Simulated scan of single mutants.
Amino acid sequence: MSRSWSPRPRRRYVAPPRSLWRRLVDYGLTSIILGLLILLAARLDRVETRKTQGVAIINDGDSITLGTERIRMRGIDAPEYTQTCRRNGADYPCGTLARQSLVRLIAGKPVSCAGWQRDRYGRLLGDCTAGGKDLNRAQVEAGWAVAYGDFESEEAIARAGKAGIWAGTFDQPQDWRDTHHGEVVERKHGTLASIGDAVREIFRFW
Rank of each mutant, 00 (worst) to 15 (best):
A114S: 15
Q139T: 03
T30M: 08
P110L: 06
A193R: 05
S19E: 01
M73K: 04
M73V: 10
I32N: 00
L34Q: 06
Q117T: 14
V103W: 09
W176A: 07
Y92V: 07
G54L: 07
V47H: 02
N136W: 07
T179P: 00
D175G: 02
R204K: 11
N88G: 01
K51T: 15
N136F: 03
G190L: 00
E80A: 09
G61H: 10
A130P: 14
G161W: 00
R177M: 06
F170T: 04
W206K: 01
V103R: 13
L124N: 04
A156N: 05
G182V: 05
G89L: 02
G149N: 03
A156S: 11
C113G: 10
F151G: 05
E141C: 08
L102H: 08
A42L: 08
L125D: 08
G161Y: 00
R11D: 11
K109T: 06
G190W: 00
G54T: 09
G149L: 01
A193I: 00
L97K: 10
Q174Y: 01
Q83F: 03
N136G: 11
D119N: 13
D134W: 13
G168D: 11
G95R: 03
R12D: 05
F151K: 01
G75Q: 08
L40V: 07
R120N: 08
L29I: 15
R70V: 05
E183V: 05
I202T: 09
L39C: 00
A42N: 02
R10F: 10
N88Q: 04
K162F: 05
V55L: 07
H189G: 03
V140A: 12
A130M: 13
A42R: 03
Y148Q: 02
F151M: 01
T49I: 14
A42H: 03
E141S: 15
M73Q: 14
E48G: 10
W144S: 06
L29Y: 04
R120V: 02
R159Q: 14
L34I: 14
I38V: 11
R177A: 12
A156Q: 10
